Simulated scan of single mutants.
Amino acid sequence: MDLDQLRLAVREWLVANTPSGWHEELKRATKEQFRDFNIRQAKLLRQAGLLAAHWPKEFGGGGFTFQQQMVIQDELVRADFPQPRLLEISLAHIAATLMAYGNAEQQRHLSAILDGEIWCQGFSEPEAGSDLASLRTRAVRDGDTYVVNGQKVWSSYADQASWCLLLARTDPAAPKHRGLSLFMLDLSSPGVELRPTRQATGTEEFCELFLTDVEVPAAYRVGEENAGWRMAQTTLSTERVFNILELQARLAVALDEIAAQARATPWRHGQTAADDESVRQDLAARAAEVEVLGLLGRRLAHSVEVTGEVGPEGSIVKLFYSETLQKLTGLALRIRGMAAMLDERREFATTWTSGQWMIDHLKSWNWTIAAGSNEIQRNIIGERVLGLPREPQS
């Protein structure tokens, strides 16, 4: 199927299957209803062969080319189709790790993910965020099990998940990058306690995980013992690529909405915001950044398709996206003014640019911290792309 045929087919399917009134539905939804909504949307996409467009066919995915994925993501965004956010980690990070390092039994979870199995990540800790390799959660081998004790934080939607991809220290005597192992953790296991964390937006998208003498079967260890850091890089690097095409497409849609808002918003002296020179300059700058982000994202995704690897260029895309999102939502706030402060009972997060600009702007700061803070990304770019000396170690 050529790209035009694919675009037409996806567009026709979206016309028939995009639910009407779903924004209002999610404003009234409980956490359980939000979970059910996500699984329902995932099933719809799977039936159409669109749920895991980036997966190889041998694992049940669409096996679409990079260009075809661009078409699919573009159409999903422009149709305002609600994609299953609770499955993002499962479909991207977990899937990539299990495909690369999981054994046949562990890879059975790939089919379960396509059926709606929700995963979270257990990586960051209170004293190990950007310096992830300094984590302290311990996994001690005891026969055919590991006994795990420790604490994780910033685990997105862990209270909605059934499984967790857990990074823990198995050799405390080894250098910090070499004594880590990766595990599949059943969140229903005795000793696992989840505590949702309320954010400034009023939502609870993150959780703390407290692990007390949790027994994890040795069969749930992914790959070799003490090789977890290398495997975790597969998980983390996927965050640089997966959905970048969708994220950029959503920024482009948001930019159009903000420009229309500027034309309709009363300003000073009987003018609209769009008549203000500084607003127009801001809009032009944001338009240029969104366009550049699209070019960077396409280049990165194409490179991954060819080489199968994400290099330090992924840090450039992550850094540029987070700052573009911040500036774009900040501009929307400036244009809308006090009206942006109204609480409109925003639904559960389905996008970073929902049009409720105060909430979106607050949430944009997540991107400057998650998956490695922007300061860390600048270090990576400086050292691995520009060849600058390494930052002095304290």
Rank of each mutant, 00 (worst) to 15 (best):
residue 392 P to T: 06
residue 291 E to C: 07
residue 185 L to V: 07
residue 107 Q to H: 04
residue 382 G to N: 15
residue 197 T to R: 08
residue 323 E to S: 10
residue 122 G to A: 07
residue 72 I to L: 04
residue 236 L to Y: 10
residue 201 T to V: 11
residue 357 W to G: 11
residue 139 A to G: 01
residue 145 T to V: 14
residue 165 L to S: 10
residue 190 P to C: 03
residue 308 G to F: 00
residue 85 R to V: 14
residue 135 L to H: 03
residue 262 A to L: 10
residue 282 D to H: 12
residue 386 L to Q: 12
residue 333 L to I: 07
residue 171 D to F: 01
residue 320 F to L: 00
residue 126 P to V: 04
residue 104 A to N: 09
residue 121 Q to N: 13
residue 111 S to P: 00
residue 207 C to H: 04
residue 56 P to H: 01
residue 200 A to S: 11
residue 237 S to W: 01
residue 147 V to T: 12
residue 157 Y to S: 14
residue 363 K to F: 06
residue 18 T to S: 10
residue 278 S to G: 07
residue 382 G to Y: 07
residue 8 L to T: 13
residue 216 V to K: 13
residue 137 T to S: 14
residue 88 E to G: 06
residue 281 Q to I: 09
residue 345 R to T: 13
residue 98 L to T: 13
residue 76 L to Q: 04
residue 45 L to I: 08
residue 353 T to D: 12
residue 282 D to S: 15
residue 250 R to N: 13
residue 372 G to W: 05
residue 26 L to F: 05
residue 305 E to A: 14
residue 36 D to Y: 02
residue 106 Q to K: 05
residue 149 N to R: 02
residue 42 A to G: 13
residue 265 T to H: 04
residue 356 Q to H: 15
residue 298 R to L: 06
residue 251 L to K: 09
residue 74 D to T: 10
residue 248 Q to L: 04
residue 172 P to C: 09
residue 65 T to G: 14
residue 198 R to A: 07
residue 211 L to A: 01
residue 181 S to H: 10
residue 159 D to Y: 14
residue 359 I to W: 15
residue 198 R to K: 14
residue 117 E to W: 02
residue 120 C to Q: 09
residue 261 Q to I: 10
residue 249 A to C: 06
residue 302 H to T: 08
residue 347 E to D: 09
residue 295 L to V: 11
residue 246 E to F: 10
residue 62 G to F: 06
residue 210 F to M: 07
residue 52 A to T: 15
residue 278 S to L: 11
residue 1 M to R: 03
residue 27 K to E: 15
residue 217 P to T: 08
residue 371 A to E: 09
residue 347 E to A: 14
residue 376 I to Y: 11
residue 361 H to V: 11
residue 320 F to H: 03
residue 132 L to V: 05
residue 249 A to P: 09
residue 283 L to A: 14
residue 260 A to V: 00
residue 7 R to V: 06
residue 96 A to V: 01
residue 266 P to H: 06
residue 319 L to A: 03
residue 126 P to T: 04
residue 378 R to L: 09
residue 380 I to E: 12
residue 205 E to Y: 08
residue 289 E to A: 15
residue 112 A to N: 08
residue 375 E to Q: 09
residue 268 R to H: 13
residue 230 R to W: 03
residue 136 R to I: 00
residue 353 T to Y: 13
residue 206 F to E: 12
residue 64 F to M: 15
residue 390 R to E: 12
residue 118 I to R: 12
residue 170 T to L: 01
residue 305 E to D: 15
residue 192 V to W: 00
residue 77 V to D: 05
residue 265 T to N: 00
residue 365 W to K: 08
residue 290 V to N: 15
residue 340 A to T: 11
residue 292 V to W: 08
residue 217 P to Q: 10
residue 77 V to S: 07
residue 157 Y to T: 12
residue 277 E to D: 06
residue 60 G to K: 03
residue 238 T to E: 08
residue 10 V to W: 01
residue 222 V to L: 12
residue 374 N to P: 06
residue 107 Q to R: 15
residue 39 I to Y: 03
residue 90 S to E: 06
residue 291 E to N: 10
residue 279 V to N: 01
residue 296 L to W: 08
residue 110 L to R: 03
residue 278 S to E: 14
residue 206 F to N: 13
residue 167 L to E: 11
residue 247 L to F: 07
residue 3 L to C: 03
residue 351 T to E: 13
residue 190 P to D: 03
residue 102 G to S: 10
residue 95 A to M: 05
residue 377 Q to V: 02
residue 240 R to Y: 05
residue 178 R to W: 01
residue 36 D to N: 11
residue 310 V to G: 07
residue 244 I to G: 00
residue 86 L to G: 11
residue 195 R to E: 14
residue 99 M to S: 03
residue 127 E to S: 05
residue 196 P to G: 10
